[in-house]
């Protein structure tokens, strides 16, 4: 599973870094950011799904790998 943030949609609500601080961080203006390549470590899949499901702007993109 991978996570990405669509910078065209993100408005800095911060739900992703609130709910999944291991996967997302905030930049200097409060917008969400994915450090590294966005690969979700084992055990953090649920946090990734919660972050995506709670983003008011639908800016968190989840890619489920086969």
């Amino acid at each position: 599973m991978k996570v990405q943030i669509d910078p065209g949609r993100c408005q800095g609500h911060g739900r992703c870094y609130d709910l999944a601080p291991g996967l997302f961080e905030e930049d200097d203006e409060g917008y969400g950011r994915v450090p590294g390549d966005g690969a979700v470590p084992p055990g953090q899949e649920q946090a990734a799904r919660l972050a995506a499901a709670n983003c008011p702007e639908r800016a968190v993109v989840l890619t489920e790998e086969a």
Binding site: Q11, G12, H13, L50, A53, N54, C55, P56, E57, R58
Partner: peptide, 15 residues
């Protein structure tokens, strides 16, 4: 409630 895409702080550029 775990899934809560509420808009109490607005949406879009005026968040």
């Amino acid at each position: 409630r775990e899934v809560n895409r509420h808009v109490a702080f607005g949406l879009g550029i005026h968040r």
